[in-house]
């Protein structure tokens, strides 16, 4: 059973997640004509910038976030931006798209100048997220849990962040029982993806370095 507070929390987070998406004019560019490697680099950089802006707009709506210390807010966003980006991309790539669009997007990433050794784990992650068949509420809550990770570098008031995260964890756990009654391990599987995300994020700096060199 959900408490009234939990119902309200879920509604606010899901609405904000649904509302704050990458603008269509940015995503449309990805499907346009062929680009050179340099143009691909610029385009994917523009996408990344847009993703961060969307992430911040979404995060502002998480109840309690704006009451945290301002520098802690920055530290949380800085520490989670890459992971949130991977999550959002996974969900975007797993959506049903018109025929041919997935291929165009994948080709663009393969031709972006990023080394194949980094692309493979990224697509493996996207696939493993797709296999979970998360509902929108679960996607929104999982992203929120990623953002509210208390042990990010430079976070001062970790207990305050932990309190906010625990509320969302409890809500997600209940959601999993409700939506996946046949899979008692579903909640644990979702949390397992967060560990995978951390590993991906860890290699992100290396990936960027190899990208620049190429």
């Amino acid at each position: 059973e959900f408490t009234t507070e939990q119902q309200a929390l879920m509604r606010v987070i899901t609405d904000a997640y649904n509302k704050h998406q990458i603008p269509q004019d940015v995503t449309k560019k990805l499907l346009q004509d062929q680009y050179s490697t340099e143009e691909n680099f610029l385009l994917l950089t523009e996408m990344a910038t847009s993703q961060v802006q969307v992430l911040v707009e979404f995060t502002k709506n998480i109840p309690g976030f704006l009451s945290l210390d301002r520098e802690d807010q920055i530290a949380l966003l800085k520490g989670s931006a890459v992971e949130a980006m991977f999550l959002r991309s996974a969900q975007a790539l797993n959506k049903k798209m018109p025929i041919g669009h997935t291929e165009v997007l994948e080709e663009r990433i393969h031709k972006s100048g990023i080394s194949e050794e980094f692309i493979k784990p990224m697509f493996n992650f996207y696939k493993s997220i797709g296999e979970l068949h998360m509902v929108l509420e679960e996607q929104a809550l999982l992203t929120t849990i990623t953002i509210l990770t208390p042990d990010r570098p430079y976070v001062k008031d970790q207990p305050a962040v932990e309190r906010l995260q625990e509320n969302v964890l409890d809500l997600l756990r209940k959601m999993c029982v409700l939506h996946h009654p046949q899979e008692p391990q579903y909640f644990a599987r979702l949390l397992g993806r967060l560990t995978e995300l951390r590993t991906l994020s860890h290699y992100h700096a290396e990936m960027l370095a190899s990208w620049k060199v190429n």
């Binding site: 950089t45 961060v52 800085k78 931006a81 620049k212």
Partner: peptide, 21 residues
Amino acid sequence: PANNLGLEDIIRKALMGNLEE
């Protein structure tokens, strides 16, 4: 945001926008 500085700039700017509102 190809480096951490760029990333922090974008975050700060997006957060401050909220303050001005």
